[in-house]
Design a protein around this nucleic acid. Structure first.
Lengths: 278, 278
DNA sequence: ATGCAAAATTAGAAAATCTTATGATATGCT
DNA sequence: AGCATATCATAAGATTTTCTAATTTTGCAT
């Protein structure tokens, strides 16, 4: 039952209560609870049968609906922020294509607010964003919290340190994010809380540009560790761990609430969620 | 759509909102709203097909479940208050037996609180009560408001009047209901509001006994008109209309909330509701 | 017996659904 | 065409359902 609950993305309690409510409505017990692991009663087997039947029929229905709509069979439309998408999707799209050769994966990169718009207007199925936020129309699924490291040019005095404290950053020229981005506000809040005074010399609306500027020695920055891997390998950047709690960039999936996903979307979502456990 | 809403026992608004929510989830329009009466779109037809299919399967399922449970196929267990049940059920049970010869109708009479208990304990399917009340576990369906007349012995001074006013009852010995019955409280409230002062000489827990006592000249009473018909025909009682608004005895059906009814119960409930329109 | 994993229970929060009241729109009649 | 009528849509708020977090209970294995 716990497994089932997780599979449905609800708590163990919800699953237990739901089963009991179904039993009450039908007036029969579906599970033999004197046995562990739980066993289906005869009525439970009949009910299970019925449910599978309905699900099968539902699958048929949504197939014929998609055919009717003239949808591209099994297309997923993903919209993503630049930073999360490039690392995430490049890995995933290959695996996805291998596993579901007939499905079609479209990824498009845009700024966060455009992503939410795209979902609302139903021109995209899934969104990959940082600081995912749910609202009346949008549901959010957290994926992971990305560690934030200090990004330095290789020749920087701090570059040889195993880790740095926030105060060590004091006084260095800093390259940040545009002010209308959520991550900028979060970083500002963090630096202020830690009593760090940096000089914001430039700001950009995406991580690529910041990395570029840091590599060119224009200043230092704080960026999600996994977005810098390539540059570190190439020796263009150095990432140093920041010894301070609570600074992470949450990344998650957003989608239109209670929207029926086609099979391709379900599959991709499944892969994304599976990668979360790792 | 309005018809459908009523059929499901919800408001027109709820139906409209629900259809729109389904449309949103599926991402298609189901109804062509530029036409009156409303027409199904192609997608709507496919969806309707799907729904019928599921309902059909659900019907099959509940059949095999009942078979499994060893239920008496198509038995309805009705529990009723004495007064409503006798007139209601005697009429209905014949019609029911004629229409559904294979079904089995069990009627049992008991006091109101026992009725609610029986439903909660699932030893009865439907309850017929006055002043139906819903609660966490119980749902109530109003059936009708019964007119309340003054019950008099044939030789009573008021018996020849076409109608009486509440104040006319002043001073007469009165035969009422037990104090723990809702109808007693309602009558008390009514008499007090009308400024009537009667002498409660006896009280009983059921209408039969009150009628008996009135017929024997022990006092007058106020009773639902339709429960006195037999005695009036026999000349044992006289009913006189009471000229005062707001005194009715609501009668309704109660049942356990969100409980799956078997076909026999659905059929009987249908007949009861159909009789309501009349 | 005792501990452990998994399910049941409880209370309270969150979300879905419903109702009432009101506004919009197609159709048919004059 | 203009108006009346019936029907559906929308809005705001209340109600009901469903969910989560925390805790307790239960079956099974050691």
């Amino acid at each position: 039952m716990s497994r089932g609950a997780e599979h449905c993305g609800v708590s163990q309690s919800a699953a237990s209560q739901h089963v009991q409510e179904v039993e009450r409505r039908l007036g029969v017990t579906l599970l033999d609870r004197t046995k562990r692991p739980l066993e289906l009663t005869p009525a439970g087997r009949v009910y299970s049968e019925f449910c599978r039947d309905v699900l099968r029929r539902e699958e048929e229905f949504s197939l014929s609906l998609e055919a009717l709509r003239g949808d591209v069979q099994g297309a997923v439309r993903v919209v993503s922020i630049y930073s999360a998408g490039l690392s995430e999707m490049s890995l995933l799209s290959a695996r996805f294509a291998a596993k579901y050769p007939e499905a079609q994966l479209q990824v498009e990169y845009m700024r966060p607010d455009k992503i939410y718009d795209a979902l609302r207007e139903d021109v995209a199925d899934l969104g990959l964003v940082s600081y995912p936020e749910s609202s009346r129309e949008i549901a959010a699924i957290p994926l992971r919290d990305e560690q934030m490291d200090v990004a330095l040019p290789p020749n920087h005095p701090l570059a040889s340190r195993g880790e740095v404290f926030p105060v060590d950053l004091n006084g260095y020229p800093f390259i940040g994010f545009d002010e209308d981005l959520r991550i900028r506000r979060e970083l500002d809040r963090f630096l202020r809380a830690q009593g760090v005074e940096v000089t914001m010399t430039m700001h950009f609306d995406n991580i690529q540009m910041i990395k570029e500027a840091v590599a060119l020695g224009q200043g230092i920055s704080i960026l999600p560790a996994r977005t810098m891997q390539m540059e570190i390998e190439q020796g263009r950047l150095v990432a140093v761990k920041l010894n301070a709690p609570g600074l992470v960039r949450p990344v998650g999936i957003v989608h239109r609430k209670r929207k029926k996903f086609n099979r391709a979307t379900q599959a991709l979502l499944g892969m994304l969620l599976a990668s979360r456990e790792g």
